[in-house]
Design a protein around this nucleic acid. Structure first.
Lengths: 180, 180
DNA sequence: GGATACATGTAAGATGTTACATGATTGT
DNA sequence: ACAATCATGTAACATCTTACATGTATCC
């Protein structure tokens, strides 16, 4: 059940409401989803891929229209919720943090609040472990480093620290609200 | 003069000191450079690519050794410093922030302090513009969003805010120290 | 009638992932 | 002698970028 981040982003948007390829492109062009490419060369092949997996289907372009509106199939919705339930692993925060946040963003209203809380808890622990490792590295192995090298390292570390503080606050908010 | 982030990371490491492919892999395995893949299927082809551009050359594997040590050619060093001098553009912070920080990390000791300061200034302005845009979006278009959707958005925003605060502090430090 | 936005697509190429393969060197 | 680590590579596949191509609908 592998798919690219883009594929899962499309799946999540189509789960919210049926859309055409062009609609999906506009989401990436016009909203803060903009770290995804809005290029047709990425989106249309991805939609065909999702179709080939049986996760989405296009309505008949009824009325002679060329516009094709895609929606999730039952199989697609099952794959989607299964993906949403995957928990963060320690290594993911290093190379796949975007994906972890993407999943969390889409979890609301689909999974129950307790699942979102568990997810955040796992994410928080992974972030704690990574921040601890970076601090250890800073203490032990940052001799012989240029000024900009050290500063760039700190930029990364502080970014992770910000994510960690966010995760703690977000957990507290979820607990209070009891909805996603 | 396009190359992947991985290609430029290799170039920068080879500019610091000549290394073999295996040495480079270990850097990615053992240090916080670990958002790069350490897989041989990425690194050895990338080294051949850099060789084909005439940017790096392997010493003769003298003594019957298989180990090949790569170093920058004069042309490679010229390409490298030219790349280091490219300034951040507004759009880069959205999709290529990693690359902007990679460049800054390697700039030290190669470019003069004033160049690093100009680079940080441009980066800071781009970050300011992006943060402002995200705040505008939050104020205007975050109705009808799930709790996790809003939280994920805030995670992204706060991460950018942390980068921005870092950029301000880093500029002040560079000004004070006068070396990179 | 022409401009603009709507709407979908393909082709070539670059790059990376995963998995497998191969052999040399070093330590015990 | 054997294991571990050093060291380099390839093949198949997935995915994305860039650039080009094509036609429709709507507005003025």
């Amino acid at each position: 059940m592998n798919e690219s981040d883009l594929g899962f982003a499309l799946l999540g948007l189509l789960d919210q409401e049926p859309r055409s390829g062009y609609d999906l492109r506009k989401v990436f062009t016009l909203t803060p989803f903009n770290h995804f490419s809005d290029s047709p060369g990425a989106i249309y092949p991805a939609l065909r891929r999702l179709g080939a997996r049986g996760w989405v289907a296009a309505e008949d372009p009824a009325g002679g229209r060329r516009r094709q509106v895609f929606r999730l199939t039952p199989k697609g919705r099952q794959a989607w919720t299964a993906w949403l339930r995957e928990l963060p692993e320690a290594a993911d925060v290093v190379t796949r943090l975007d994906r972890l946040l993407l999943r969390f963003a889409f979890m609301g209203g689909v999974l129950e609040p307790a699942a979102a809380e568990r997810y955040l808890e796992a994410l928080q622990r992974s972030l704690e472990a990574h921040v601890a490792e970076l601090r250890r590295y800073r203490a032990e192995s940052m001799q012989d480093v240029t000024v900009t090298g050290r500063l760039a390292f700190e930029s990364g570390l502080e970014s992770y620290e910000a994510r960690l503080e966010w995760a703690r606050r977000a957990r507290a908010q979820l607990r209070r609200k009891g909805r996603t």
